[in-house]
């Protein structure tokens, strides 16, 4: 009897296959930029050898916020309310500080009703990844302007947008973000490397990803379209993420051609210089490049700003090491004697 050997399924260092990171089939439009991002989140987690149970997903409302169903089905997830993913994530992530939080939002979700929570989660530097799948349009309600839509954009039923857009990377930066990146869903490799860096970052890691809406806002002369992105993307650098174990083996790079940024967990982001010098640890530089990009209609992408040592919300609470949601009941109820003392002191 000739038994065929079972097909070797490729696994990562955690012993898991790509299938272990998959989600339900996507119900978004074919070609939607969000599907690429879901796929790159999946790949990043696979390549980082993360166990899906170590990750928790959060989202708000809109097309973007449906997408957490389409990756990591072995991870817990919570699809919350419009614009209020950050507060939901904040509360939940305190339950077990060993779990990595990935929040998925959209421009409708973040730049309007969620603007306050976006700014405040950044201000707290809550350790989590905050991805905005930014297409400049409300997809799930069929094609209204979002607050990131460019001035003068014309949409089928809406006419012309008279308002100036909100730049979420700039808003993140001036709110004190410790990690700000912009990418383009058509640039899968960069998206993936940025997600890996964001997951390793200890603090709020904001990635504003231009993610075209093929149904409502993909005209080739508009900022959020595939064609515009492919033609105009201007990466600040060529970014690669090197995990801790490999990072310690890194050799010397040629002076002046790369910059290395060491993250909290020992991993390293290597930024290979392209045409111009760009230092993402310099906030002034970051602000200036965002201003210039806006004036000149450049789609700059890459790691815009990073401060790996900024204190986080967890640092402001002196909590027990054990996950709070696993504390035994006798550690959360004071003893009877303490109540008698309190009673004696009350009059």
């Amino acid at each position: 009897m000739n038994e065929k050997p079972a097909a070797q399924v490729e696994v990562n260092a955690a012993g898991l296959s790509r299938g272990d990171y998959q989600g339900e089939p996507s119900t978004l439009c074919p070609g939607c930029g969000h599907n690429t991002i879901s796929s790159q989140i999946l790949t990043a987690c696979y390549e980082l050898n993360l166990i899906p149970e170590q990750i928790v997903k959060f989202s708000g409302i809109g097309c973007s916020s449906k997408s957490p169903t389409y990756f990591l089905k072995r991870s817990f997830g919570f699809n919350g309310l419009h614009g209020r993913m950050p507060s939901l994530a904040l509360g939940a992530l305190f339950a077990d500080r060993t779990i990595k939080g990935i929040g998925i939002s959209g421009d409708g979700d973040t730049a309007s009703i969620g603007f306050g929570q976006f700014k405040h989660i950044i201000r707290r530097n809550m350790p989590m990844v905050y991805i905005i799948e930014n297409n400049g349009v409300y997809g799930l309600t069929k094609g209204q302007f979002s607050a990131t839509a460019e001035k003068g954009l014309e949409l089928k039923h809406q006419g012309r947008n008279p308002y100036i857009p909100i730049d979420l990377a700039k808003e993140a930066l001036i709110s004190g973000a410790s990690f700000v990146a912009r990418s383009f869903s058509g640039d899968a490799k960069q998206v993936r490397e940025l997600i890996k860096a964001a997951i390793s970052h200890y603090g709020t890691a904001v990635i504003d990803i231009i993610s075209p809406c093929v149904t409502f806002n993909n005209r080739e002369d508009t900022l959020h379209s595939y064609v515009w992105g492919r033609q105009h993307e201007a990466p600040l650098h060529d970014i690669s993420y090197v995990p801790y174990r490999k990072a310690i083996l890194l050799g010397e790079f040629e002076e002046g051609t790369t910059q290395e940024v060491k993250l909290h967990d020992g991993s390293v982001v290597i930024l290979k210089k392209l045409e111009t010098d760009y230092d993402p640890t310099d906030k002034w530089h970051a602000l200036r490049i965002l201003e210039e990009a806006e004036m000149n209609r450049w789609l700059i992408t890459g790691l815009i700003y990073i401060n790996p040592t900024q204190p986080t919300l967890f640092d402001f609470h002196d909590l027990v090491d054990q996950p709070l949601n696993r504390l035994e009941v006798d550690r959360i109820r004071p003893d009877a004697e303490s109540l008698e003392k309190l009673n004696d002191s009350m009059y």
């Binding site: 928790v56 950050p86 507060s87 509360g91 939940a92 992530l93 305190f94 306050g116 909590l319």
Partner: peptide, 23 residues
């Protein structure tokens, strides 16, 4: 063994509370 966090508004306060309760 506790976290007390002043939110930016009641919308966020209850969001945090729901996240924590769920977890």
């Amino acid at each position: 063994t506790y976290v007390i966090e002043q939110a930016e508004d009641e919308l966020a306060a209850i969001g945090m509370v729901c996240g924590a309760g769920w977890a």
